[in-house]
Design a protein around this nucleic acid. Structure first.
Length: 507
RNA sequence: GGCGCGUUCGUCUAGGGGUCCAGGACGCCGGCCUCUCACGCCGGUAACACGGGUUCGAAUCCCGUACGCGCUACCA
């Protein structure tokens, strides 16, 4: 057992026996969890995964999932950015119960908390400038020492404080941190302990009176009665500060779940340099939300079996925080592509069509009705297993509706060198046109009969016909293709292609 | 520098002292299917970071080292 902490080995095996058949967790609900992104203008995939684990825990144990926007830095936030995060979450399928709340709305409450700490002597006013502290710090560092504020600067005396206050000197409020060792339980890391003296008196109120992040998160987590703090690994080192604050505020300390970071292919923190970083980008590149959810959910968490394709519902059933990995993971786009292809093939046709629609619109394939609509759906069915993304799917459907295709001479060399081919294709077109039933079976029979009559292999007719209809060497089974294309377009494309062969062949 | 966290195939992972000369998936390579492509199916490639312990036995437990990442702000 990775956590909680170290148990005796007999206790471990007992626990294992109990959890073997059914995935159990030591965590009991109902829980109150929260996802607290900063409004950066997009939903980062790392954030999306954090949100997913938040929701999995809530779904699994019951309780509430609170969405809170960490907009302490006023510059960074506006309504559009907040909406962006919400729509990103909605798209990927994460549902929250409360919010979105804005952290900035708690400003007064945060300031009150600082005031309370001040009155209780758990915080003090610091009149030193950051330059002054910085200078002392670099001086100490030059001597190879680490400077802690609290070892170098004494808080001002009551007299001095009153004097400076009267003189309206600017000050920050610093939290008087504990000098004991601080430990907390983290469901991913186990018991984490920070030795005595590893904290310093940190700022909780800036000189302009605004609360810093540390104060705000703790106040809000207290206010919202958060039981489990699920967040990125990068906050692990900040956690002792938070624990100290929770205690000072007289509030229960929540359980922590620190998620390992998602890395780019360069093993660095996922950034723009290595490709897409936001869920919106993946959406725009033609990935299905189900696939992204699946990929993200299984990045850093595994139910233990061989499962690779799992729906949100299945994850909810099997999810336990204890099985979240503790090491950082590189996001693998190839695997996402594979997953996406799996979902494109297995989802209902209607659903794929729904998600494909934004990619079809620019190609003029939207708003089709009646027979055209039916043709589009049939074509979609024929091509869905051939595309890895919705973006790739669009161009494959165009030939079914385009008036005239553009053939590339280089790809048609083989056909151009066959003198008798145009005649054969005309014969084939005539046979197709005369067909009563435009079905794959009938079409195939017709083509094979012709190939026998003119004494060529079926492939000699099949390949140029595919080229004629799609301007491509690749594609679905020819007879399915022709049947879906329909009598009219088939005849038109075939005639055009014969014309093309005539023009290019003679020149 | 200090403190914290991490390290199993290229990538995601299974693994919890013997059943592991390490299993699955993606990728890659080869084959089958076949009118092409894709899907699917079959096969192959490839890893316990290093060094010490503990133990009859270590991927698994302990200690170091290396490397990576995070924090060390009046950013979040």
């Amino acid at each position: 057992m990775r956590s909680p902490a170290k148990l005796g080995s007999s206790a471990v095996s007992l626990l294992r026996a109990a959890t073997e058949s059914i995935m159990k967790t030591s965590v009991t609900g109902p829980v109150r969890v929260r996802f607290a992104p900063s409004p950066t203008g997009f939903l980062h995939v790392g954030g999306a995964r954090t949100a997913i684990y938040n929701e999995l825990l809530r779904e699994n144990l019951g309780g509430s999932f609170i969405l809170r926007i960490e907009d302490t830095d006023a510059q960074r936030s506006d309504a559009a950015m907040i909406e962006q995060i919400c729509s990103g979450l909605r798209w990927i399928g994460v549902q929250w119960d409360e919010g979105p709340f804005l952290q900035s709305d708690g400003l007064e409450r945060h300031q009150q908390a600082a005031q309370q700490l001040l009155e209780q002597g758990k915080a003090f006013r610091c009149f030193r400038t950051s330059e002054e502290i910085e200078a002392a710090r670099s001086q100490a560092q030059a001597k190879g020492e680490t400077l802690r504020y609290r070892d170098f600067f004494a808080p001002p005396s009551a007299d001095e404080e009153a004097q400076r206050l009267a003189a309206k000197e600017p000050f920050v409020v610093r939290f008087r941190c504990s000098d004991d060792s601080l430990h907390f339980s983290d469901l991913v890391r186990g018991e984490v302990e920070f030795p005595a003296g590893s904290l310093d008196d940190f700022v909780i109120l800036r000189s302009d009176g605004s609360p810093t992040y540390h104060l705000s998160v703790v106040c809000d987590d207290v206010e919202m009665r958060v039981t489990h703090v699920i967040r990125g690994d990068d906050h692990l080192s900040n956690t002792p500060k938070h624990v100290d604050l929770f205690r000072a505020l007289g509030a229960p300390v929540p359980v922590f779940v620190h998620l390992p970071l998602i890395l780019g292919s360069d093993k660095k923190r996922l950034s723009k340099r290595t490709g897409a970083t936001s869920v919106e980008e993946f959406r725009d590149q033609g990935f299905l939300p189900q696939a992204l959810y699946n990929a993200l959910g299984l990045l850093g968490w595994s139910p233990g079996g061989d499962r690779e394709i799992m729906s949100r519902k299945e994850m909810v059933e099997l999810f336990t925080v204890e099985r979240i990995n503790s090491s950082a993971a590189i996001f693998d786009r190839d695997k996402l592509s594979w997953l996406n292809a799996q979902y494109m093939s297995s989802l209902s046709l209607e659903e794929v069509a729904k998600y494909a629609s934004p990619f079809l619109a620019p190609l003029g394939l939207d708003g089709l009705e009646g027979e055209s609509r039916q043709r589009l759906m049939a074509a979609l069915e024929l091509h869905r297993s051939r595309a890895k993304t919705l973006e790739e799917l669009g161009p494959m459907l165009v030939p079914y509706f385009q008036e005239e295709l553009v053939y590339v001479v280089e790809s048609c060399q083989k056909f151009l060198s066959q003198e008798s081919l145009p005649g054969h294709l005309e014969a084939l077109a005539a046979r197709f046109a005369a067909l009563e039933e435009f079905s794959p079976e009938a079409l195939e029979q017709e083509l094979r009969q012709l190939s026998e009559a003119v004494e060529v292999k079926a492939g000699v007719l099949i390949h140029p016909t595919r080229m004629a209809l799609t301007a491509s060497k690749k594609g679905p089974s020819l007879f399915e293709l022709v049947a879906t294309m329909g009598r009219e377009a088939t005849g038109r494309h075939l005639a055009n292609f014969v014309g093309f062969l005539g023009r290019e062949g003679s020149s």
